[in-house]
Design a protein around this nucleic acid. Structure first.
Lengths: 222, 222
DNA sequence: TTTGGTTTTTAGCTCAGGCTAAAAATTTTA
DNA sequence: TAAAATTTTTAGCCTGAGCTAAAAACCAAA
């Protein structure tokens, strides 16, 4: 049985919650899919009947294996389309989310595997999030920590973001922080916990703690 | 006001009929959008109210300028996605129609213009149909005639098809007829009106009249 | 011009997926 | 543990887009 776009969005939302906090309550789902809790109850009943979701009244929802499979495929589709939009169509990284959200509902395995091959099997999307492979295996990003965890003297490479809202991404653009760039943390200002990063021992970037908390880095050898 | 996928399909169908036979009757529309005439009546009323269509009961439908604009954009989107699927994702030309039908409803001008640029502004889709430009101008295919019009001795290049059903396209594949190939018509068999084509004065292809009627060609200099 | 056939419209129904408002269940707090 | 607050569910309604069956309009031929 084929899922509607709307149903797919619910599966994706449950998946996100499972991966994150753990529990997909009715209300958190409502927020994610932008509907009322009443509508969520309704949809969860249908998805349960169809075998995508395990759900008992007042108990929250979990995905069945096939539901999880479906959700991972959606994440895969979403992230591959984002790569396409940024790499091939030269969209800014803050502008691709909503388009990918539309594209992810198109076609099936065939299309997405061809897209994957065309893009040469990218491992990460433009925000540094890992792209599940064709078998649904999500490669975990190794050793990634928030930039706010770094201490003076650390060398690191920016490898992702926790917040991929347009607002935050455009802010990073203004600081010319982007994925793959290498920095050394040369100072941590006690007053407001802001950090000073150097790039190639020359350009300085001043990073507020609020920003650092949402930037993911990998420490590199001294 | 944004159009739904369904509404877009109606506009495209009316456009097709206008370009072809001329008159978009309720019944012919029903066939094209795969709905009943009753549903068509219903939708035409809505599209008329919204200013996309001119329509009076029992009189058939015509597009308003903005409706036509919308329809041409859809054709553009459809054909550009077909080019993408064939050129970049290496789909066979007989397998792209239904995917393009889904993709054509995604995003707006921005996306399609970027796709157009990425594909380097192709003039024709994989079936040889012309792709309207960003201003909605449809470049007419010059001098194209049906292959069944050719006479013995004519040299020509295959430039399009009238029938782009999977069945027909796969049949052409079997005859290894594809767009851009040059032939000379060396014989016309009176018995069943089938034709014999040579390619580069060596390989022979036998083409039934039924096929020839659906292959578009351009005559070339002797 | 009247009769019959075709096409279109109307009327009323269905289904998916939303919504609100109120009721019920659960959890928290006093 | 009882009251208050929160969350979830139920009930009933709406909209878009389709459907069928029957009525109405139109066209054509006798």
């Amino acid at each position: 049985m084929r899922l509607s776009s709307s149903q797919e969005n619910y599966l994706k939302a449950i998946y996100k919650l499972e991966v994150g906090d753990g529990i997909a309550t009715n209300q958190s789902l409502a927020a994610l899919v932008e509907a009322t809790p009443a509508s969520v109850t309704n949809m969860l009943r249908k998805l349960t009947e169809a075998g995508w979701v395990e759900y008992q009244a007042y108990q929250g929802a979990t995905l069945t294996p096939s539901g999880r499979n479906e959700a991972v495929t959606l994440v895969r589709k979403h992230r591959l389309w984002e790569v396409f939009l940024v790499e091939k169509l030269h969209y800014d990284w803050d502008a691709v989310h909503s388009l990918a959200e539309e594209l992810e509902h198109i076609g099936g395995e065939e299309l997405i595997n061809r897209l994957d091959a065309f893009l040469e099997h990218p491992a990460y999307d433009p925000h540094g999030d890992p792209i599940p492979n064709a078998k649904g295996v999500v490669r975990i990003r190794q050793h990634a920590i928030a930039a706010s965890e770094a201490v003076v003297g650390d060398r690191f490479v920016v490898c992702g973001v926790k917040d991929s809202s347009s607002l935050f991404l455009r802010h990073l653009d203004k600081l010319s922080i982007c994925l793959g760039k290498a920095y050394t943390l040369i100072d941590l200002l006690e007053f407001d916990q802001s950090a000073v990063w150097t790039e190639k021992d020359s350009a300085l970037t001043s990073v507020s703690n609020e920003v650092a908390k949402n930037v993911l880095i990998q420490l590199t050898d001294e």
